Deep mutational scan, measured.
Amino acid sequence: GKMTGIVKWFNADKGFGFITPDDGSKDVFVHFSAIQNDGYKSSDEGQKVSFTIESGAKGPAAGNVTSL
């Protein structure tokens, strides 16, 4: 299901970062391709987002990331 969290950091040059879930669980990796914004796929530190957890090649990753 959908979770909410805060972007801990995001490196636009490398195209990835981490989200800290609101439920206190482990930080989740986020790749720019998962960000659902139109246009520039980046996110700012401290941005509140909703997301799903997908199982990626390197473990859990955020999917369907949407700014709230």
Rank of each mutant, 00 (worst) to 15 (best):
T4M: 07
S42C: 14
D27P: 08
S25H: 06
S43Q: 10
E54L: 13
F32M: 12
I53E: 02
I6N: 05
D38W: 14
I35F: 15
G63M: 14
D22E: 05
I53F: 06
I35W: 15
K2C: 13
V49C: 05
K41Y: 12
N37C: 15
N64V: 06
S33F: 05
I6T: 13
F18N: 01
D23G: 06
V65Q: 01
I19P: 01
P60N: 08
P21V: 04
I19M: 01
G59D: 03
K48I: 08
P60D: 08
P60A: 09
F16C: 04
S33A: 07
F51W: 01
D13A: 14
A62D: 01
D23K: 05
V7N: 02
S67W: 14
V7F: 07
V7H: 01
D38Y: 14
G63P: 01
G59A: 04
H31A: 04
L68Q: 07
P60W: 08
G59V: 02
I19Y: 00
N64E: 07
N64L: 08
T20Y: 05
A62V: 03
D38K: 11
K41R: 12
G46D: 05
M3N: 05
G39R: 09
P60I: 12
T20I: 12
K41F: 15
K48Q: 07
Q47W: 14
G24H: 06
S33H: 06
S33G: 06
A12W: 15
A57C: 12
T66Y: 06
G63R: 15
A34M: 06
S43W: 15
I35V: 07
H31S: 06
F10R: 00
I53D: 02
E54P: 00
T20H: 07
G46N: 09
Q36H: 10
V30E: 03
D38H: 12
F29W: 07
K8V: 07
G59I: 04
K41I: 13
G24Y: 03
F16N: 00
G1N: 12
E54Q: 11
I19F: 02
N37H: 12
Q47T: 13
D13N: 11
N37D: 13
V7I: 15
V28M: 04
T20P: 01
S42R: 11
Q47R: 11
S42Q: 09
T52H: 07
G24M: 05
A57W: 13
I35K: 01
D44P: 15
E45T: 15
S42K: 11
D44G: 14
Y40M: 11
G59Y: 07
I35Q: 03
V49A: 00
S25I: 03
D27F: 02
T4H: 07
